[in-house]
């Protein structure tokens, strides 16, 4: 395995789902309660170690879109992996999840995708937890950028899938 490989990850999802917060938590170990909209794209990087190999993750945190088809194509070109983020408290951010996955499968076949339900710290009721145990959410991962829960794991997971 090449020990100095570099991988591009694009973070997708609606506005306000916490894409930037996830990246800040992962790269800078920080969290802010303040909401700041992302315009265009901010690119950050972090080196991770997977099975003794160093991988440079270059993370494209792009502006929120209600549909991936509305994202600027040049942002998505050349990506090695996608993280699709939704907000577990806002149904409009995950109700078209299947269509979004179809779009990626058709336009970026063979590029791995991880589906992430963020703000899991706000899943307070049993009903809410049971909702995400349904079949269509079985392969989703749940994170809290605020508390840091599972954030490292999802980046490790997508990195392994990209290698």
């Amino acid at each position: 395995m090449n020990s100095s490989q570099s991988k591009k990850i694009v973070i997708l999802g609606h506005f306000g789902v916490g894409k930037t917060s996830l990246v800040r938590r992962f790269v800078d170990s920080m969290f802010s309660e303040d909401y700041l909209v992302t315009l265009g794209v901010q690119v950050k990087k972090k080196v991770v170690t997977i099975d003794d190999a160093k991988v440079t993750l270059i993370i494209w945190d792009i502006e929120g879109n209600s549909s991936i088809s509305k994202a600027r194509k040049s942002y998505l070109t050349g990506t090695h992996g996608f993280l699709y983020v939704f907000d577990v408290t806002r149904p409009e951010t995950f109700e078209n999840l299947e269509d979004e996955m179809d779009f990626l499968a058709n336009n970026f076949p063979s590029i791995p995708v991880c589906k992430i339900g963020n703000k899991s710290d706000l899943l307070l009721t049993e009903n809410a937890k049971e909702f995400f145990e349904q079949e269509q959410y079985k392969d989703c991962d749940f994170t809290s950028a605020k508390e840091g829960n599972n954030v490292e794991n999802v980046f490790q997971k997508i990195t392994k899938q990209m290698l």
Partner: peptide, 26 residues
């Protein structure tokens, strides 16, 4: 200089395109 430029390196090596446009890069 910046991770943005670094991430383009592979694209330039693998793509046949001659023109690339990236609006609103932070």
């Amino acid at each position: 200089v910046d991770p943005f430029f670094e991430s383009l390196k592979e694209q330039f090596l693998t793509s046949n395109k001659t023109f690339f446009v990236y609006p609103c890069v932070n």
